[in-house]
């Protein structure tokens, strides 16, 4: 079908690079992502591999390129291999479990600091922002959280994949991504009004307003449905 190259010899005409997976050397095509590099090298991934598209945050990877002392991080499914890359995956971060009942919380300014007291220990190093593969200003939303600006924290943190890399770097042991999650839940539950049109519709459904029409549709012949469908008005 679409792709006749699939079964071709993979290494033909490709530039190869050396990567070091947990210290062991493998030579792989330079066009691969780190994730595909692992697989090319013969690994079968179980941990550290989920959506393969930058959405689930399962594939946090730490790496360093030879000659450079800086430790870098990225999502294995979204980062290309480089020559002399030394890498390992960090698919799990032993975060402590924080449990709350959203119903019993409030959207007031102390709520985040009450649930996550450690946020006030932020030393302002910005390591969290620097490692975020989504380029979220993590320290900034933590600052909002400390000041009780729940909605701002929710907005700023929205693109978080919960990969946990921020937390691995935090000298104050803050679980940034969980703070972010609670800020979004508090914001949505307590700080924006509920949708009135939704309540109205629920009431109508409960009162059986649509029952007769639904019955009629469910029993309609195919021809009737086709006719209705082809002649329906479009907003």
């Amino acid at each position: 079908m679409t792709k006749d190259v699939k079964n071709q010899e993979k290494s033909q005409g490709q530039n190869m690079v050396d990567i070091y997976i947990m210290g062991k050397k493998y030579t792989v095509p330079d066009s691969l992502t780190i994730m595909k590099g692992f697989e090319y090298a013969g690994y079968t991934l179980i941990r550290g591999c989920g959506c393969r598209a930058g959405f689930c945050g399962a594939c946090s990877t730490v790496y360093r390129v030879a000659g450079d002392h800086e430790l870098k991080v990225g999502l294995a499914c979204q980062t290309k291999v480089e020559n002399d890359m030394y890498l390992t995956q960090i698919p799990f971060y032993p975060a402590h479990k924080v449990q709350y009942q959203l119903d019993e919380l409030q959207g007031d300014t102390d709520q985040l600091a009450e649930t996550f007291p450690e946020i006030t220990k932020c030393v302002g190093c910005n390591a969290c922002s620097n490692v975020c593969p989504q380029d979220i200003k993590v320290m900034k939303y933590i600052a909002h959280a400390i000041r009780g600006e729940i909605s701002k924290a929710a907005d700023e943190s929205f693109d978080c994949l919960m990969c946990g890399l921020c937390a691995t770097k935090c000298p104050a042991n803050i679980l940034q991504y969980k703070v972010a999650l609670l800020s979004r839940r508090l914001h949505s539950r307590y700080l924006v009004p509920g949708a009135e049109h939704l309540q109205d519709r629920l009431k109508e459904i409960e009162e059986g307003k649509y029952d007769a029409e639904m019955d009629q549709l469910m029993n309609a012949s195919r021809e009737e449905l086709v006719d209705k469908y082809n002649n329906r008005d479009i907003e």
């Binding site: 959203l102 839940r185 914001h187 939704l198």
Partner: peptide, 16 residues
């Protein structure tokens, strides 16, 4: 979902 705190796109009066 709304009650569970799922952050839907809404306008300022809470309409979806």
């Amino acid at each position: 979902l709304e009650k569970m705190g799922c952050m839907f796109d809404k306008d300022s009066s809470g309409n979806m």
